[in-house]
């Protein structure tokens, strides 16, 4: 394995981590707002807040880790993506700010206003939409290199069916991942009404999630044939991913082993995410940038990898402690303990 491949694998793994934990977070915010809108808030809010409150900052760090890491391992991305993403990334930051301030002002600050809950819920849908545009752009065809610098062709971007199907996939995936996780969590909390409601959401959103995912593969055929043919070479990985998907839906349908169901779902997304990533190789931005011509020098790469391993040694035990105290602690999950400062 070359240093380039190690670097991008590490980053891709962290991006995957962000996709899962952030999806849970975004979807939960949306379900919370939706249940407030439908007047059923009493069913979900407690479950959702109990899970989200201690972990949300950790979610955000996954994203920061990814974009700091990619500039470290592949400095040229700062120039290419930095120039073209000014508007979409700024909008994503503002939306993330709305979520952060929801915690600051509502959960910690006790400012109870419906308007924040709605803003928070909606931002959870707009963030994946605005972030997923980066994946669309990376497929090429939307960036032009002019004498003055790089320019993003917004018209082409927003009229492309590929853009919109990736946006829809990101939304469906967010709601599906979140619903499956929260079904499990509500079940652990022995909250029957919440479990039933979330189980229903999980089943509903499983369909659009798988349909749009398939649709994108079809659309890539026209948009980026090179990428499409590499995807096809990895058809068996997508097959495995589909089997894992079917397993999740089956378990949820049968009301069995929600924990295993969430495990299968993680597997499904992991396999698909890496199959997509591997087929994208070696391009970071079609056709301008590959992981090889954008890579940093060897000394920096080795230093970053050493820092990464050391950092992981620090983080994994801490994350384990966090999960043990909140996610896997019976009293806390069932709401018998709060202990907030």
């Amino acid at each position: 394995m070359t240093l380039e491949v190690i670097g991008i694998s590490v980053l891709w793994l962290f991006l995957f981590g962000y996709v899962i934990v952030a999806s849970i977070d975004f979807g939960a915010g949306f379900f919370n707002a939706y249940s407030l809108f439908r007047g059923k808030q009493h069913i979900l809010t407690r479950i959702i807040q109990r899970y989200l409150s201690p972990v949300w900052e950790v979610t955000n760090v996954f994203l920061v880790f990814f974009f700091v890491g990619i500039v470290g391992f592949f400095p040229k991305t700062a120039y290419y993506y930095g120039t073209i993403l000014l508007v979409p990334a700024s909008i994503a930051v503002i939306l993330l700010a709305i979520r952060g301030s929801y915690y600051a002002f509502t959960t910690y600050g006790g400012l109870k206003q419906k308007k924040w809950t709605y803003l928070y819920g909606l931002s959870g849908l707009f963030i994946p939409a605005s972030l997923s545009i980066v994946l669309t752009i990376s497929e090429g065809g939307f960036v032009r290199e002019k004498a003055t610098g790089l320019v993003l062709d917004y018209w082409a971007l927003f009229t492309s069916p590929l853009t919109w199907s990736i946006v829809v996939l990101s939304l469906a995936a967010v709601l599906y991942i979140s619903a499956v996780f929260l079904t499990w969590y509500a079940h652990k909390a022995q909250d029957e009404p919440a479990t039933e409601l979330l189980r229903k959401y999980a089943l509903i959103w499983s369909v659009p999630a798988i349909v749009t995912a398939t649709g994108i593969i079809v659309e890539l055929q026209g948009h980026n044939p090179e990428h499409f043919s590499r995807l096809m070479d990895l058809w068996w990985l997508f097959g495995i991913s589909f089997i894992l998907f079917a397993g999740t839906v089956y378990l949820i349908w049968k009301r069995k082993s929600y924990g295993v169901a969430f495990g299968l779902l993680t597997g499904q997304f992991l396999v698909a995410f890496f199959a997509y990533g591997v087929s994208h190789y070696p391009y970071l931005l079609y056709p301008y940038l590959t992981i090889y011509d954008s890579f940093t020098n060897e000394a920096m790469a080795i230093a970053l990898i050493i820092a990464f391993v050391a950092g992981l040694g620090l983080l994994l035990p801490s994350l384990y402690l966090l999960l043990r105290l909140f996610l896997f602690n019976k009293d806390y999950v069932q709401g018998k303990r709060n202990d907030h400062a």
């Binding site: 409150s53 201690p54 900052e57 801490s318 402690l321 966090l322 105290l325 202990d339 400062a341």
Partner: peptide
């Protein structure tokens, strides 16, 4: 961030 979450919710 991890330990702040823990500290905050374990008074």
């Amino acid at each position: 961030a991890i330990f702040l979450g823990i500290y905050l919710y374990t008074w």
